[in-house]
């Protein structure tokens, strides 16, 4: 039997999440009994099951596609995570329009293939479309610019 790195990592994630939920459940929730279950009964049951399955993933016989060939797109990962965060941080304080500008510009930077001109075009077009669709047509109740609103 051989265990690949992928199995170890995947199983590890399941075991870690399971252990986290199990510990939290044991510390904060009432488990009760089978006769009268508490809020913690299912969490304990399911997180133990998840840990068991995580171990199962590690011990399972490996398939033949167990190779990580493609590199992780670090740049993409960074910008794609950053973009919604930026939006979240600015939408209440600055308003929908500036927040969207940040969101679109940041996310289009995620690709290595985009030139600066392309980023600008994509940003302008998308900003126009989203404001038109969400603010004008659907009438979502968020101010475009928040600084003026009290």
């Amino acid at each position: 039997m051989r265990t690949t790195g992928r199995q170890l990592k995947a199983g590890g994630i399941f075991v870690a999440i399971g252990a986290f939920f199990l510990a939290t459940a044991l510390l904060t929730l009432d488990i009760g009994s089978t006769l009268r279950m508490g809020a913690g009964f299912m969490p304990v049951l399911l997180s133990c099951l998840l840990i068991a399955l995580g171990i199962g993933v590690v011990l399972e016989r490996a398939g033949e596609d167990e190779v990580e060939a493609r590199p992780i797109p670090w740049r993409g990962l960074a910008f794609i995570t950053l973009a919604p965060l930026l939006f979240a941080l600015t939408v209440k304080g600055l308003g929908l329009a500036p927040a969207l500008l940040g969101l679109i510009a940041t996310s289009s930077l995620a690709s290595r293939m985009m030139s600066l001109t392309q980023v600008l075009i994509v940003t302008a077009v998308l900003l126009a479309i989203s404001l038109l669709v969400f603010s004008y047509v659907l009438g979502l109740p968020y101010p475009l610019f928040a600084l003026s609103a009290g």
Partner: peptide, 23 residues
């Protein structure tokens, strides 16, 4: 993909008006 991400983010924000959902 910037369009996918943008529309998704606004859509998710509009569900409850909560920035927490974006995190």
């Amino acid at each position: 993909f910037p369009a996918i991400l943008t529309f998704s983010a606004i859509g998710i924000y509009s569900l409850n008006g909560n920035v927490f959902d974006l995190y």
